[in-house]
Structure formats: C-alpha cells, structure tokens
Amino acid sequence: MDYSYETIEDILRLCQEEKLTFDQVVLRNEMNQFERTEEDVLAEIDRRLDVFEESVKEGLAIDSHTPSGMSGKQAKQLEAHVPLLLGKLAYKAMTYSIAVNEANAKMSRIVACPTAGSCGILPGTLLALAEERELSRDALRKAFLIAAGIGAVVTERACVAGAVGGCQAEVGTAAAMTAGAVVGLLGGNERQIAQAVALCFKNLLGLVCDPVAGLVEVPCVKRNGFYSVHAITAAEMALAGIKSQIPADEVIEAMNRIGRSLPAALRETSDGGLATTVTGKAIAEHVRNL
C-alpha cells in the first residue's frame, strides 16, 4: 500500500479510503518511504519530544541577555507575571514558545520546526496543552506526526525558509503545523485539521522576514509567542466547525506565490523593514562592534 502524499487533500483522501487518522497516514508513509519500523520512528519522535521539553526548561531558566542585548529573560518575566487578559492555556503557550526561542538565541539545543527561527511555536504550544489537559506521551507523538505531515506538504509544495518566502514561510508554517496538531490533540477529525491549517495560514499571509542585525532575535523571539496564540485561535475556530472558503492546499499555494514576490529586502537580508529602522541600524552597529 502506498501512503505517499503531496497535498493536504491527498492525506484527507488516504484517511477516508484507508479508514486511518491523519497521524496514521503520516506514520505509515514515513515507515514505507524510509523502510523503518513503527517502533523506530516513534523512538525518534520521542527523542525530539525530549528536546522540546528540555528547550522549554532551558528557556524559562535564562537569566541573562544575549550578546546583542536584544533577548533573554523574557520568558522568565512572563512566567512571573499573573495573566490579566489571556486564558491559562494561551498564556502558557505564548510563554513556552518564547522560552524555546530564547533558548535558541542563547545557543541551547533546540529542534528546528520547521526552522530555528520558528522553533518555539510547536513545542511551546504542545507542551502547554499537554500540561493543561494532562495529555499522554502517546497523544504528543500523534500531534508530532500531524504537525510533521502538514510541514512536509508545505516544504514540498511551497517553502519554509525566510530567505525564500519571508516569515510567513517560517513562522507561518510553524503556526499552521501547530494549529493542525492542536485540533488533532483535542479530538478534531482530519477535515478539521485541514481547516485549521487553512485558517491559520490565511491570516498571516505577507508576514515579512526583516531581522534586526541579521540575528534570530527581533522580531523572531516574541513573534513565536504571538503566533502560538494565533495557532490556538485557528484551532479553536476549526473545532467550532468554522470553514475556510479557500482550501488549505490553495492557501499554501498562495503563501508560496506571495513569498516569492516579496522584495529581497524583506526576505532575511536585513536590508529593509525593522532592520533598517534608526534603532535597528544602531543595534546592528553595536553587534558589529562587540
């Protein structure tokens, strides 16, 4: 049996034809393509989930700034604050996502998902949800598979590098992977997972990559916090049965087209946007003279 897929629609079709869940399709395809056993794939997922957990812990413990002075201690600050507006889950997801990106900025070990600049959204949100809802390791493995399946489609059909498609390709993909995974974790079906992907992506199209001083810190670190909440919003809508008028695959296609038509100055070159503000340039100068 061939479980290979190129689009989200392919995955949905395989789910229906083979009476499988989204994560099962992704798992079976991985086993087939790379001739690996289920045990072997799940063990590797576990190793990455372990790094997810370690990176959240490391990020929350950071008590100094990066050499640039742009990040560090923010996750700690958020953890110490009692949320006044956000619900517990969204607040924790935001805090954990920022923690992972701060750990990344401080040269700790992280899992690129799909990139280093967007490495906080998936682990931060999944682990916050797992804590709040007391979810098992096995549930997290399934969420990992759903997220990876979504990310694989975007990687193959569009792009996930800021230098190619702007931040919408990096953080956008991370958020869409997360939105789908959250829907799966809360019992949504494969159609709702696809809806979450479409809703999530649609509402961040055009997001540019303009890192100050060329570093993965501003706006990246806090942006991971913002888009973990965005992912949760998309998941909530999908779980409520809200449908995107534009299907997920077409939204992904649109993201790709938009990304490739962005000017180079807004694709990780630090020649535009926040990077060329007065303060952005002053920080870049400071970094050069470190």
């Binding site: 290979s4 991985e30 794939v41 900025a105 040269m107 070990r109 799909p114 280093a116 990310g151 990687t155």
Partner: peptide
Amino acid sequence: MISIFDVIGPVMIGPSSSHTAG
C-alpha cells in the same frame, strides 16, 4: 519525499541553521 525528521528537525544548537549549525 522529505522525512518528517527533516521537517521537525534537525536537533541543533541555536540560533541559526546557516550561521551556527552550518
């Protein structure tokens, strides 16, 4: 086809896959 471990991966030391891991 790409492996799920290339999508959620690699495990690396931050902050940048090109400037640090590379």
